[in-house]
Each structure stands twice: as structure tokens, then as C-alpha cells.
Design a binder for these strands. Structure first.
Length: 432
RNA sequence: GCGAGCGUGGCUUAGCUGGUUAAAGCAUCGGGUUGUGGUUCCGAGGAUCGUGGGUUCGAAUCCCAUCGCUCGCCCCA
């Protein structure tokens, strides 16, 4: 090809204006709900000295980071919103109120190979509550209630927020004497729902647990029933482990607090929710749209972490948060056909002056319609009238107002419905 | 990082057992139709077939390399 290609890089999502309108609507619902519940908006930089971002990062993250030199500076693009938040909190701790409820809706970057649902540039909508020294368990429930409120409004269908607690898992693993294999066991639990029972069995056998341990692991994962039943079953397992008991009591507390908030229908205790292998230390959750679990995946997830900023401060900042991967969510919803018919244009009325002689009248008319709350555009490019109508048709605008010599002279102006072709009197304009 | 598939006008593709001027639809532009669009009719422009090399009398077509894209693995939002 002779010319330079205009295609975006792989993994960078660009939308048509009509899709962008829907994308922005979703983003606005999320933003509005954050604000409504007292999460304060912040905006943090995209670029950092690499040492700041890599302070906590493991091998995987380091491989995926966009890193470059500018002069003598070793710089990197942020790969999530949590690390920027951590240093923000430490940096501004003297002026922040704790618990600090914070909202971030912004892009992050990962330099990995793109594929379906995996982008190199993506929006995340994070809501976090950060405590200083300690943070009450009620905030774990509060971020879950936030997810419930957001997905209730978005109307992508019924959804389920699956809640678990990492202490419950690690206490259980400790109790069956398998702490040395904790990582592998968590990995198996995490994918248990995605593999066949046979594969699951062979994975468990591959662990080399004692017969008793393997049996109790099967029993633990196999617990079913409603939330109360599962919680009671967990109690009846009689696991003699302090961490386990703490996890169970936290999980009970979260479910009970959610009931106090009126959130019961969408929340389910699910012992197979694990979330990333480190980082989270208590409550964890994922959200799926019912019937679209495999197709769309988790649409909101997060959890509790003991210390947000151990690399930047000797003070302890525990937190709990939830993240909606908006770019992935939108791509998945579109793939699943859940995005539906979108508006082509935000414009309600397009004013079509015949020539520049009618501009003044047209601009004034547009302002009056705008004052009534309509979105109004005026087409002033010099082209044949048929072309102007074709433009109106193609943009998908609902109505047009034609302004020619007669309208200016008499003030007798009509608005035309583009779908039906019918014209009706427009009494907005008065030459006052 | 590993594996598989695919790169042909702006877009979606046909052509691929090598053989005249690379074909179609959509989009664009002009006209039938400059006070009314969607439908329709006529016409036009637009492609060094991703790039580089090789085989051959001859390559979009076969071979090699390279870049890019897509999907999967890993990991995750």
C-alpha cells in the first residue's frame, strides 16, 4: 500500500458515533451512581516514572506494561487505576477524609496481544473506599450495593453478584493441611465452573492431597443452596481454623448488611469466586448477566485488600473496591447482541436554510428550539437543496425545519417529521 | 511469550491446480431531478493484489522472509 494505513492498532477500540452515544450513556449511568452515593471523582496522570508503577508489580505485569524512555526518564503508562490511586492517597493523605470514597473513570494501557475482550487501551470505572488504619466491613457491602444499583439501571437483563471471602478459602486450605499448594488449589477452584467434572477430578488428583483432604475440598466446593443454607453448611463443616471463622463471619456480615440495604435478589454466595491469586485478602465478588455467563463474562468485580499502599507509606490503608471494565463490557455486550438499537445522532431537529440569506433567521430559530430543551443543528454548507435533505436523512435526525425566503418573510414555519414525511406548524418563532 | 488462520479499491468479499486491460456489492462523486430525503435509472473516479526477495517466458495465485490483523493459550478489566 502506498498510503499510510489509517487503521487503529490492534487492541484499541474505536466506535462509530452511534455506538459512542450508547457507550457514553453507560458511562454516565455509572458516573452518576458513583456521585449519588458519595464517591468523589478524581483524575490521575496516565504516565509515571516506571519505579512508581513497578513497585508492586509481579513478572506478568512488568511484561505487559508500556514502557519508554524520554530523555533520561524511564517512564511507563499505567496498567490499572489502583496503583495511581495508591500513590494519590499517600500523597494527599493530609487533606483527605477517611474513609475516602473515590471514583475513577479513565483509561489504562497494557502492552499485550489483543484478542476478543482483551484490549491494549481500555476504560475502567473504579469505585473504592479507602480507610486509614482500619475500614469497617459495611463498606464491603456498600460497593456491592453500588454494583446492584448500576446494573439495575443499565437493564442488560437479570444479573447475579457472586460473593465470596478469601479468608474462608485460605483458612479452609490451611485446615486441610494444604497451605503449600494454596495457589494451585485456588487456581482449580477459580476454573472449576469452566471445566468438566472429569477434568476437575483429574486436577484435584493431580494435587496429591490426602484422601481426607480431597474429600473435604470436594464437599466444600459442592455446597449448594440459598445464601443462608450455604452459610449454615459452612458453619457445619466444623473447620477448626481462626482465619476460616473470620472469613465466615465477614461473609455473613456482608450478606446481612446487603439485606439491610435492600439488596437480596441479586446477591449469591459462590465459593468458586477467587479473583487474581494475590492482592485480595477478604471479600471478593464477580458479577455476571444471567444466561450470558460464558459469553459476556464478569461485568463488575473487585474485593477487599488489606493494604493499598505498602510500597509508598508505612501507614496502613485498607480498602475495598469494585471495577467495571467498560471497554470489555461494551465489546462483550455488542457481541452478545445486548446493545440494541442505538440513536444515530443526538440531534433532535436539523434546520435547513436555503441560502445564506436565511442564516440569521435559522440561527435564531435554532436557539429558541434549544431553549425548549431540544438538541438542534443548522446545516449551513452551500449545497443543492436535495443534498441537504439527503444529509438530514443520512444523519438519522427525527425532524427538519426548512427555512427559505417565504418563511423569513411570513414567519410561517413548518417542522417536518422525517419518518412520516408529515409537516406541522411550528409556532416557536416570534420575531420579538 | 507460545500456537493456528488471514492480508485484493474507503468497506465486505470473488479470483488462488500460474496465462490477455484484477471482478462484484456497499460507500463516494456527477447527471435524470437546484423548495424536499429515503426507492429507482444512467454514468464516473478509485487497487503498484501488506512489504521485500525468490522460482518462472509469465505471479494476486507457488516458495522464503518480514510486518500487520484475527482467534486460542498464558494472564487479566
Amino acid at each position: 500500500m502506498n498510503k499510510i494505513s489509517t487503521a487503529p492498532l490492534s487492541g484499541f477500540m474505536e466506535l462509530s458515533p452511534s455506538d459512542q452515544l450508547e457507550f457514553d450513556r453507560i458511562k454516565d449511568v455509572i458516573r452518576a451512581e458513583h456521585v449519588k452515593r458519595g464517591f468523589l471523582p478524581i483524575d490521575t496522570p496516565l504516565i509515571y516514572r516506571s519505579e512508581v508503577l513497578l513497585a508492586k508489580a509481579g513478572g506478568e505485569t512488568e511484561k505487559q506494561i508500556y514502557r519508554f524512555d524520554k530523555g533520561d526518564n524511564d517512564l511507563s503508562l499505567r496498567f490499572d487505576l489502583t496503583v495511581p490511586l495508591a500513590r494519590y492517597v499517600v500523597d494527599k493523605q493530609s487533606e483527605l477524609n477517611f474513609p475516602f470514597k473515590v471514583s475513577q473513570i479513565a483509561k489504562s494501557y497494557r502492552g499485550e496481544r489483543a484478542q476478543f475482550g482483551r484490549f491494549r487501551e481500555f476504560y475502567q470505572c473504579d469505585a473504592d473506599v479507602i480507610g486509614r488504619g482500619s475500614l469497617d466491613i459495611s463498606y464491603d457491602a456498600e460497593v456491592i450495593a453500588l454494583v446492584d444499583a448500576i446494573y439495575s439501571q443499565l437493564e442488560f437483563g437479570d444479573f447475579t453478584i457472586r460473593v465470596n471471602n478469601r479468608k474462608l478459602l485460605s483458612g479452609f486450605i490451611d485446615a486441610i493441611g494444604a497451605s503449600s499448594k494454596a495457589g494451585e488449589i485456588l487456581g482449580i477452584i477459580d476454573k472449576a465452573a469452566k471445566i468438566t467434572p472429569e477434568e476437575f477430578e483429574s486436577e484435584i488428583r493431580g494435587l496429591g492431597l490426602s484422601d481426607d483432604g480431597a474429600g473435604r475440598l470436594r464437599e466444600f466446593i459442592g455446597l449448594t443452596g440459598d445464601n443462608t443454607a450455604i452459610l449454615n453448611s459452612l458453619e457445619e463443616l466444623n473447620i477448626d481454623n481462626e482465619v476460616y471463622r473470620q472469613g465466615l463471619s465477614e461473609l455473613r456480615a456482608v450478606i446481612s448488611l446487603l439485606a439491610d440495604m435492600g439488596v437480596t435478589k441479586t446477591v449469591r454466595v459462590d465459593l468458586m469466586i477467587v479473583r487474581g491469586l494475590d492482592y485480595y485478602t477478604g471479600t471478593v465478588y464477580e458479577t455476571t448477566i444471567n444466561g450470558r455467563e460464558r459469553e459476556v463474562g464478569s461485568v463488575a468485580s473487585g474485593g477487599r485488600y488489606d493494604d493499598l499502599a505498602s510500597n509508598y507509606s508505612s501507614e496502613n490503608f485498607p480498602g475495598v473496591g469494585v471495577s467495571i471494565g467498560l471497554t470489555r463490557l461494551f465489546a462483550a455486550l455488542k457481541g452478545a447482541g445486548l446493545v440494541g438499537e442505538t440513536k444515530q445522532t443526538p440531534v433532535d431537529v436539523l434546520v435547513l436554510p436555503f441560502s445564506s440569506a436565511e442564516f440569521a433567521y435559522s440561527y435564531k430559530l435554532a436557539d429558541q428550539l434549544r431553549a425548549e430543551g431540544k438538541n438542534v443543528d443548522v446545516l449551513t454548507e452551500d449545497m443543492k437543496f436535495g443534498k441537504k435533505m439527503a444529509y438530514a436523512d443520512k444523519t438519522g435526525v427525527a425532524s427538519v425545519v426548512v427555512v427559505g425566503e417565504n418563511e423569513v418573510k411570513t414567519g410561517d414555519t413548518k417542522i417536518k417529521n422525517m419518518k412520516t414525511g408529515q409537516e406541522s406548524q411550528l409556532d416557536t418563532y416570534s420575531d420579538s
